[in-house]
Design a protein around this nucleic acid. Structure first.
Lengths: 192, 192
DNA sequence: AGAAGAAAACAGACTATTCGGTCTGTCTGA
DNA sequence: TCAGACAGACCGAATAGTCTGTTTTCTTCT
């Protein structure tokens, strides 16, 4: 049913819809999002949205795919500097909370248990970790568990934190203090 | 507007509403929950629900207060065994995912940043941590930050995890493996 | 190049349904 | 006996998704 746009104009519209939808879904979730608000923000209409994405759910899927795609490359993974990687994740949560919130909505509204996605996005990381472990530069333990744990630590103050969500407008000293703690704790946790 | 029940029968109904609502809200969130489903599950009717709780939002507040109250005492805090405390939190997430999901919904639908609640529930913990630090039994660092980090580690595989949510029906070996990793990493992270 | 014709994009009214919340009248138990 | 508990019909607002007719854009043919 959903048909991708074929003209230049259509692609631009589809792009605006994706951006507007990302914001709306990040803010309100799937059930809370309003198609009408999305089309208004994207300066288009519902017929267009439905012809490109088929349904509200289909649009959500498209938004997730879109955002995951260009965010995976944004923070290069380094099995030998997990502490630094964690700090970079902390900063990403501060400045681009959207994706984290989209992921959290998916977890709550769609996948209450198991892997968030198919997990394929982590495969290269798993190999890098196994290698670093074999070379004795990283502690023992299931590589996937290690990734999960490090991501959890980096997300401690993130947009889905159950205790405290940090924001970019806090004093820099606060962030520095957290970054230092995070870096040190991750380093200790994963040391060989 | 909301009036607590005055008779025995009324209290029982109010109790059934709270329980049914906890399940419905945990599963679907505030926007996704249906008042009708709650009254059906509680074997009562909307008039009753509204007379006791005033509104859907008021009911959500009541559910949160109810669940937080009887769950705070469930897992005693021990500043000298944060690793053990974290493991107990891991187990709680396995067997009572409801509260964690309710908290996550609140974060997403109500409080996108800052503290989840007023933070008062952590005050006694903060004091215990400060004391353990002063006695040299715990690493340095802002006590609140430390709590946030330890809770995040314990929630790595929890019902709101962005990567993987564990469930009670997985093989015991999986859980033991994660518990061991969690215990060890927390212990390393908070060692003096 | 430029006009014609087809296809795609567009606007927004419309529909069918769902849902939070209320109202009216009946029942129950202390 | 009477306040409180109850059942469920009812209402108005919102909302996902569709339909109709118009405008813009692309392609193609002379």
């Amino acid at each position: 049913m959903p048909e991708l746009p074929t003209t230049r104009r259509g692609s631009a519209t589809s792009r605006r819809i994706l951006d507007a939808a990302a914001e709306e879904f990040a803010q309100r979730g799937i059930a809370g999002a309003r198609v009408e608000r999305i089309t208004a923000a994207a300066r288009t209409n519902k017929a267009q949205l439905y012809s490109y994405f088929g349904s509200k759910d289909g649009l959500f899927d498209a938004v997730i795919a879109d955002r995951v795609r260009d965010s995976t490359a944004a923070i290069p993974f380094d099995a030998d500097d997990l502490a630094g990687w964690a700090v970079r994740l902390y900063d990403q949560g501060l400045h681009q909370p959207e994706l984290v919130r989209l992921i959290a909505w998916t977890r709550l509204e769609r996948r209450p248990s198991g892997r968030w996605f198919d997990g394929s996005e982590h495969i290269p990381k798993l190999a890098a970790i196994a290698e670093a472990q074999a070379a004795g530069r990283l502690r023992a333990g299931d590589p996937f568990d290690l990734i999960v744990l490090v991501i959890a630590m980096a997300s401690a103050w993130g947009p889905a934190s159950s205790v405290y969500t940090a924001t970019a407008d806090e004093p820099a000293a606060e962030h520095d203090r957290r970054r230092a703690l995070l870096r040190d704790c991750v380093a200790r946790a994963v040391a060989p």
